[in-house]
């Protein structure tokens, strides 16, 4: 028996909105530790890694490890039926081929449930090695989304370069070039507005705008985003989900042909 209850169903909806650009379907691995998902996008350029801890749920029970393959378009349809303030309870029997989502309104005056068919997905789990990153940048997630959106107008790629002076985002294309530089700004009163850089050595890497833009769909999940970079290693874009876990995106840097 698997049962997970989340008072803020909107958090799960935001997670779904953040990954549905990249993934058509995905397997949710449920264990007593929580719910994990790892999947590459269809082009195998980026990897999505979601971790929702069991103790972040309002109720969590998982008697037997369970992998639930879901079509994310269908899951999106189910969550479209939920109200913004609804509580969601997910339930599945052991070895079940369906999962049930029950939505309850705040006042408990409306209860709806939707049963969705599960899929058997051929999933490939990748082992992600521990990396000592050359630089770790933390910045407001809205600012990151804005910069990526702005610079995407200029070219297909964005160079992210980080030095002790700050972080620079650059793009170039037919119409010209664009550069955005951010200096470290520590705001002790408003931690979420700070830009902080933990630098071991300067690094500059090139990434495809299309994927960076998809990652920023996770902006509503978190005030801050963490970018971890190292030469010849995928970029990690991490959004913390308050009290529940995190959503990470990995993107292979572009390389000289």
């Amino acid at each position: 028996m698997f049962e997970a209850r989340l008072v803020n169903s909107s958090t799960f909806r935001k997670v779904l909105d953040a990954i549905k650009d990249l993934l058509n379907e995905a397997s949710f691995d449920c264990s007593e530790n929580g719910i994990q998902l790892q999947a590459m996008d269809s082009s195998h350029v980026s990897l999505v890694s979601l971790n929702l801890k069991s103790d972040g749920f309002d109720k969590f029970r998982c008697d037997r490890n369970l992998t639930m393959g879901m079509n994310l378009t269908s899951l999106g349809k189910v969550f479209k039926c939920s109200g913004a303030d609804d509580t969601v309870t997910m339930k599945a029997q052991d070895y079940a081929d369906t999962v049930t989502f029950m939505f309850e309104s705040k006042k408990q005056d409306k209860i709806s449930d939707y049963e969705m068919k599960l899929m058997n997905l051929d999933q490939e789990h990748l082992g992600i090695p521990d990396t000592e990153f050359s630089c770790i940048i933390k910045m407001p997630s809205i600012e990151f989304a804005r910069i990526i959106r702005d610079l995407s107008q200029f070219g297909e790629s964005i160079v992210i370069s980080c030095t002790k002076e700050g972080v620079k985002f650059s793009a170039q294309g037919d119409i010209g070039t664009g550069n955005v530089k951010l200096a470290q700004t520590h705001n002790f009163d408003k931690e979420e507005e700070s830009v902080t850089i933990d630098l071991q050595e300067p690094v500059a890497l090139t990434f495809a705008c299309q994927y960076l833009n998809s990652f920023t769909k996770a902006t509503p999940l978190s005030n801050q985003v963490k970018l971890s970079m190292c030469e010849n290693v995928p970029l990690v874009v991490e959004y913390q989900i308050p009290e529940l876990g995190h959503l990470r995106f990995y993107l292979a840097p572009k390389i000289e042909e």
């Binding site: 590459m40 195998h44 990748l126 082992g127 790629s157 495809a208 990995y250 292979a252 572009k254 390389i255």
Partner: peptide, 13 residues
């Protein structure tokens, strides 16, 4: 520039 696959960096488990 070329776009490599993410699988190039991570091991199959």
């Amino acid at each position: 520039m070329a776009q490599p696959s993410i699988a190039r960096y991570f091991n199959n488990r």
